[in-house]
Design a protein around this nucleic acid. Structure first.
Length: 681
DNA sequence: GTGGCGTCC
DNA sequence: CAGAGGGACGCCACT
């Protein structure tokens, strides 16, 4: 009678109970009572009074991690009537947390195994879709029951729930769930909370944003990870083969933890004024990134194959020459073996050391080459080709999705402590561009027939932000006038009219502008410019005399960071810098560079995120068929129908330049073409 | 898993 | 005294 019934306890929180396993043996009143006590306890969890995170320091006195719910089975929804009750309960709830169980860690490659829905502590359900009997079990023997596919007619109610923007949803890394659900035939709408993003805006420097770690640290709850369920290595099983009750319990615990973390994070989000950043920047971006990853980008497979053949031929030639010099064949990719050749056999001078021995990096090879040695020259050529071949030309085709024929990167929204995105699997934010051969790889990123790639990038966004924050009159004036900022910087430093700035002067000014953004010191500047240390120091002195406001801002920013323990961006994104208090000078100096760089890099990240959100919305309205594909920190790449090129350009430029109103103008250049190189030109 | 190196912004 | 380049990810060799 109790079996799979809805039981209501406390606060009218409806809880579906899967009691099959309890009644296998005769009903046991003691067992049932224990279960009810447990359920009551679970409703109390969010009321636990947890200490706040203070700075980036360790969290004090969190309850020792305990199994989330050691004995209570999760409610596994197995029929239509039950499904209807779940849907009704979700529609009544203020917030529905979701967690998808999938057959692969890669959202776009696996399939939906199950879906957990949670509306409160102890109030969660698991919808099994693709569970199978573990291997070794006899066919038909206790095969897990599954619901029909999420995309099928009987599941229309759940799909309607998921796509109803009026039903607020929550998740942890909801982009992943969004993609999985979309692939399974359902549309997600109404995302209003993501515990991963909440944790990120609260402290972007923390080591991990994994749900199980956050739950352990902030709730004192132990969650089972994917690896816990499937095992690892030789004995690893597919998630679909994991005992459905275990998978269900884990997924439901995850979804419930999302809701509890919302409570745990609430006061800190409020007190640190992070709610607007989360609600108006990061959360809306989830849908944008979902669409970008879903869209993917087209690559010219034949061109990559052709480049691979060409690179191979060149590499063979270089290898032969190097082996001839060495008198033996060896692994040119091995740093230790290379050291033997360069510094023992050939007795070349050691110009730089690493922890483990003499450095063989580009700067060293370049300098040795400048001294007239042939081997380093050959090695530089070898390095470039082998890098491009192994990392891009030969790897990218393997990332082409079999179903779409396109490459779908994954954007990590919590990957960089400054607030930048990162990209992986594959990383499409470091596609070569600098050298001729590098550019040839970028040409393989193309638009499909009838489309054009559109590229828009911010001009000098970090320097503009430096001008904005510092309010340095000369810098602000330079940007207000428009034109070439490095040329203007050179004119100011060298005290000559702009038209008398030589290429070398401009190059030096450009270098010192970037050195300022990165906190580079005189030693590195001297090395980079090939000038003496004294000249570099004099150069820096002159720079900061002309731009005294910049020096003042750098000093002020470091002082405030030391005092408050953190720095902030334009949109109140916060980054803690505990290194400033370190007793080690090098670590402190690193902290100072972090303190001055993070507001610049992070504010630039804020701006492009705002622009992305607005453009995404605008393109849906005005340029249907145009899709945002990639973001590379200060650049956006779109695929637009040929007929929409002009309108899309206008929309993109307007929203990027209008992302915020600063003391200096934001300038964006846009271009279009058949491939990524031509579009940027 | 770590270190060296190299790609991008 | 000298040092003193921010943020990522991937490939390779080696342990």
């Amino acid at each position: 009678m109790l079996s799979r019934d809805l039981v209501t306890i406390r606060r009218d929180v409806p809880i579906a109970l899967e009691l099959d396993r309890l009644v296998v043996s005769p009903p046991d009143t003691e067992e049932l009572e224990r279960l009810f006590i447990e359920l009551e306890f679970r409703t109390l969890i969010p009321k636990l009074d947890l200490p706040e995170l203070s700075g980036a320091g360790p969290v004090a006195a969190v309850p020792a991690p305990a199994e989330a719910h050691p004995a209570a089975p999760a409610a596994i929804v197995a029929d239509a009537a039950e499904l209807d009750r779940v849907i009704a309960a979700c529609r009544r709830a203020p917030l529905v947390a979701i967690d998808t169980a999938t057959s692969s860690p890669d959202a776009l490659r696996g399939e939906l195994v199950g879906l957990a829905l949670a509306v409160g502590p102890g109030a969660s359900w698991y919808l099994p879709f693709a569970h199978v009997a573990p291997e070794g079990l006899l066919a038909g023997d206790a095969a897990p029951r599954n619901l029909p596919a999420l995309g099928s007619a009987p599941l229309a109610g759940i799909r309607a729930l998921l796509s109803d923007a009026g039903v607020p949803k929550a998740g942890h890394d909801a982009k992943r769930d969004w993609l999985v659900l979309r692939r399974a035939g359902a549309t997600l709408a109404g995302l209003s909370y993501d515990s991963m993003l909440a944790a990120f805006v609260i402290d972007p420097g923390r080591r991990s944003f994994a749900l199980d770690e956050l739950a352990r640290d902030r709730l004192g709850v132990r969650l089972k990870t994917r690896d816990d369920l499937t095992g690892r290595g030789k004995t690893q099983r597919a998630l679909s083969e994991v005992d459905v009750t275990a998978a269900a319990r884990a997924a439901c615990d995850n979804a419930e933890a999302v809701l509890q973390l919302r409570g745990a994070f609430a006061s800190e989000l409020e007190d640190h004024h992070l709610q607007p950043l989360l609600d108006t920047v990061e959360l809306p971006l989830v849908g944008v990134l979902t669409d970008m990853e879903w869209a993917g980008v087209l690559v010219d497979r034949a061109l990559l194959a052709e480049l691979s053949r060409g690179f191979t031929a060149e590499l063979v030639t270089i290898e032969r020459q190097l082996y001839a010099v060495a008198g033996t064949e060896f692994n040119l990719n091995s740093t230790p073996q290379l050291r033997t050749l360069l510094f023992e056999k050939l007795q070349l001078p050691v110009l730089k050391k690493t922890k483990t021995g003499p450095s063989t990096d580009y700067d060293v090879l370049e300098e040795l080459a400048g001294m007239g040695h042939e081997v380093p020259k050959l090695l530089i050529a070898y390095r470039e080709l082998s890098k491009l071949k192994s990392t891009y030309v030969d790897a990218l085709p393997g990332d082409i999705h079999p179903d779409t024929g396109r490459i779908h990167t994954s954007f990590n929204q919590v990957g960089a402590a400054t607030g930048r995105l990162s990209s992986s699997d594959p990383n499409l934010q470091n596609i070569p561009v600098r050298t001729e051969r590098g550019e040839s790889i970028r040409r393989a990123f193309i638009a499909p027939p009838g489309f054009r790639l559109l590229v828009a990038d911010y001009s000098q966004i970090e320097l503009r932000l430096l001008a904005h924050f510092s309010e340095d009159p000369a810098f602000v004036r330079a940007f207000e006038q428009g034109g070439d900022i490095h040329r203007q910087t050179a004119a100011a430093i060298f005290g000559v009219p702009q038209d008398q700035v030589t290429a070398e002067m401009r190059a030096q000014a450009k270098t010192i502008n970037f050195a300022t953004i990165y906190g580079q010191g005189p030693v590195a500047l001297a090395r980079q410019l090939g000038i003496t240390l004294d000249d570099a120091k004099a150069f820096i002195k002159q720079y900061f005399e002309r731009f005294a406001g910049v020096r003042a801002w750098l000093d002020r920013t470091i002082a405030q960071a030391r005092e408050k323990g953190y720095v902030e961006t334009l949109f109140a994104r916060r980054r803690y810098i505990p290194e400033l208090k370190d007793r080690n000078f090098n670590i402190r100096a690193f902290g100072e560079r972090t303190a001055t760089n993070s507001p610049l890099q992070g504010s630039a990240a804020d701006l492009i995120k705002v622009a992305m959100n607005r453009i995404h919305a605008a393109l849906l309205e005005t340029a249907a068929g145009s899709r945002m594909l990639l973001q590379v920190h200060d650049e956006l790449v779109f695929e637009v129908p040929e007929a929409q090129e002009a309108s899309a350009k206008e929309v993109v430029k307007r929203h990027m330049e209008g992302a915020a109103s600063l003391r200096v103008p934001l300038v964006v250049s846009v271009g279009a073409g058949m491939n990524w190189v031509d579009a940027k030109g």
